[in-house]
Structures are given as C-alpha cells and as structure tokens.
Design a protein around this nucleic acid. Sequence first.
DNA 1: GATACGTGGCT
DNA 2: TAGCCAAGTAT
Length: 379
Amino acid sequence: MKKRRIHCPVMVEALMDWYDSHPRDLPWRKNRNPYWVWVSEIMAQQTRIQAVRPYFLRWMERFPTLEALANASEEDVLKLWQGLGYYARARHLHEAAYLVLEKHDGQIPHSYKQLQTLPGVGDYTAAAIASLAFGEREPALDGNALRVYSRLWQIEEKTESARMRANIRERALTVMPAERPGAWNEAVMDLGAEVCLPRTPHCSICPIVRHCKAFGTGNPGRLPLHRAQTEPRLAPVAVGILEQAENQYLMRRRPRQGLLGGLWEFPTVEIEPNQSLKQSLESLFAMLGFSVQIGVEEHRLVAGFSHLIWDMSVHRVYLKAGFDSAKNSLRWVSPPEWEKLAMGQPHRQIAAWLTPPPLFPDTDCSYNVNRHESRLHFS
DNA sequence: GATACGTGGCT
DNA sequence: TAGCCAAGTAT
C-alpha cells in the first residue's frame, strides 16, 4: 500500500485553532477520565447532546466510578437510563463495567482494538475512547465526522458502505495530528455539530471552507449520501390493565432482549395478523399465569419508534380464576410506586392516563396520534 | 449488508 | 407539518 504524506497542515491548523477558540461547555469535558469519556460516548450514540447532558450529570452522581456501576442492579441502571432510548446501551455498559473489573483488573482497556471487545463498544466508541482518553491516533467516525470528511473530500459513496468508511478512515489518518489526536477528533465532530450541519451547512463561517471540495463544487448540503431508510412497520398492539384491590396494578418486566428490553410495562402484546385482540390478550395473560376476561377498549394511543409504530389499544382485564404472581418479572404496583420502575415512553403515557383522577384522558396522546396519523391511514 | 433498536427536536 | 435524523452497535 502506498504511504500517504500528511495532507494539508494549513487545514489542520485552521481547524485546531477554531476548536481551541470555540470550546464547548460539556460536563464530560471537564477531565479526560476514561470512565467519563466512556459513559458520555455511549450516551451520545444516536442521541442529541442536550438530551445527554442531564442524564450524564445524574449518572455520575449515582455511579461516580466504574465500581459503583458494576455493583449496581440492572434495574437501577435502567431507571437512570429511562427516557434516553436504546436501552441495550445501558445493559451493555453495565455488563462491560463488570467485565472490566473482573477481566481487566479494573482498568479500562487503552487500545482501539481492545476496547472493541467490550459489549456496546463498537468502531466509533472505541476510537473515541482510545483517542480522547488515551491519546491513540485513531479517527472517530460518527455521523458528524462522516459528514465533515465526506464533504471535505467529496466522497460520493453512501455512508452505510463499509468501503466508504474504510476509505474515510484511511484519509483521516493522513491528516490527524500525532500530538493531539483526541482534540482533532473532537474538533471534527464539533465542526459537524455546529457548522457543517446536515441540511444547511454554515459554510460562510467554516474555518476550513477553502479546503472543502464539496463547497468548491457548489452543493455541500447534498452530502453525505445515505441509503434510503425503510418504512417503519405498523403493528396493532393490545395492552391489558389488571387491577387488584387498592389501586394495585399488574406490571411485568419485559424480556431483556429486544424492544424496551428489561423495562416495566402493563402487559402488552403485538396482535398477530390472524389473531383477534381478545385471543392475543388472553393468551398473554395465560402465559403470565392469569385466566382473564377482556373488557372494552378504554384508551388508544400511538407510539412511534424508529423502525416500528405501535397502534395501542388499552383494555381493562378481569380475573376469572386464581393467579400466581410468583414470577419475579411480575409485580403488583400502585401509582406512586411505579414511578420507581423503569418504563418506556409508551407505558409512561398509559401510566399517566391511568393515574387517578384522569380528568382529560385523551389529551395526553393527541401529540402522538397527530404525529403518526398519516401513516395510520395506510393500514 | 440489512435490520432491530427510542426518543425528541428541528425545519 | 411531516419527515428527517442525532456522538452507533449487535446480529
């Protein structure tokens, strides 16, 4: 393979100067503690920075060290993650903390390669931690960086292609300064977050416009190229509300794998195409150990995910025969108690609706109904 | 390579 | 407003 020389020291200096003169006040940049870097990078995956900020602060208060995290229960971890989404991130981080303690003598691995062996740490996060916390010279290619680089060099391939990312990585390696690799990565990402914006790049204030090939061509906003995203699937879903005396509602913990994994909910099933709502709910409750009768629909709401839309129909269910609540994935919970359980957005909405007195039952979900109304008509 | 996996803010 | 998509990873 041909060796490339370091490209464009002028451009590197311009971007580094811009970075140094535009410091962003982010909580996790107060130091380069590897644990802080790690947690912030995991939280930031597919998530906006303002959303991360409060979660990061709460997290560090509750789990100040790797040991504190490793010793916490998964339920506590998920509770702190509630609302951030992509809950596998929290479970993986929790497990990885344990692994670092057990198999790495409590030391977070230093290298790009080693970091990738940890659950939840992929290509990007390994590069980010290795460069930011340990000074390794490895380009961190997140969405921002991919956008900046693809415009800078006018890469016409889709970002989902492995070849495109390998190409960018190789080129990025030739411009990355050896002295401050972490700062370079942050500079590129910051530029993408604040200047080189997805739709409307602010080229007039960009410190490296003069080096930008896509700007020279006249339309940087069309890059980077993406694969067309697949339409979310629409799924009818039934939710059963089983109430014992004294405001005690049956809740269950969802399987740790899959959608909203490990979170608590009012028992919920997707209705299979050839099944009725009643059959679906009855067999779900049978599986949980309850023989029930299904009441009328009392509430309807729509929950949109990135890949899926739940059309949720909420029913009271009534106990016909004896029950067995011995499963530890089941719990009888009253309204004040359920605020301690980690729940996803859809079930938090149902909880809000259910919380007595529900003066205006419909008002809560109007936002989501409107949001997905157009899609619902296609079903 | 394609799909599963959340949530909310912006244009 | 409806669609886009944000500091990605696992399978």
